[in-house]
Amino acid sequence: MQRLRSSGSSIWGNLVSTPRLKRKASNTWAAVQDAFFSTKDTFERNKVVFTVGTSLASVATAWIGYSLRYYHETRIDQRLETIEKAMRNSNNLEHSELREIAGSGSISAPTCFATAGTTLIIGFVPKC
């Protein structure tokens, strides 16, 4: 403590001196640039590996999504068959009568155009 008083500088003066701050800022900026350029070089050297890796990841994700969708659809079909059997057994309904209750299941052209138009609007409007 005596040594600091005798030199005429304070603790804050030593910690916040301009040349020291400049050197720290310069060192920090150099470290950031080194990290950026090394990352950039790594990506450029392994461009093919990253491209193939992301493609495989995309294919795997699509396959998993399709598999889950197929599994879900299968489960729904099984459940609907169970419901149909239960209705048939409890009410002695014929298949044609069940069709009338459930509807024809066909898709109309206006419904198709409305869905396509909505999809087009949602897909392109936010990108403008």
Rank of each mutant, 00 (worst) to 15 (best):
Q2S: 08
R3C: 06
L4M: 14
S7V: 13
G8H: 02
S10E: 07
W12F: 09
G13V: 02
L15C: 03
L15W: 05
V16N: 12
P19Q: 04
P19M: 02
K22D: 04
K22P: 00
R23M: 10
R23A: 13
K24C: 04
S26I: 04
N27R: 09
T28W: 01
W29I: 05
A31V: 04
A31Q: 03
V32A: 01
A35Y: 03
F37S: 02
F37H: 06
T39P: 01
T39S: 13
T39G: 10
K40V: 03
D41Y: 11
D41E: 14
F43V: 12
R45D: 15
K47C: 03
K47L: 07
V48K: 14
V48G: 04
V49R: 08
V49N: 02
L56I: 12
L56E: 07
S58G: 03
V59Q: 06
T61D: 02
A62C: 07
W63T: 02
Y66M: 07
S67V: 04
S67C: 05
L68R: 10
L68G: 03
R69W: 10
Y70K: 05
Y71D: 04
H72A: 13
R75C: 05
R75E: 12
R75H: 05
D77P: 00
Q78R: 11
Q78P: 00
Q78F: 05
R79T: 12
L80M: 15
L80D: 10
T82H: 12
K85Y: 14
K85G: 09
N91F: 15
L93E: 00
E94V: 06
H95V: 13
H95N: 14
S96R: 08
E97H: 09
L98F: 01
E100R: 06
G103Y: 00
S104E: 13
S104V: 01
I107S: 12
S108Q: 13
P110S: 14
C112K: 13
C112A: 11
A114I: 09
A116L: 15
A116G: 11
T118D: 09
T119Y: 11
F124G: 03
F124R: 09
P126W: 01
K127F: 05
K127W: 02
K127P: 00
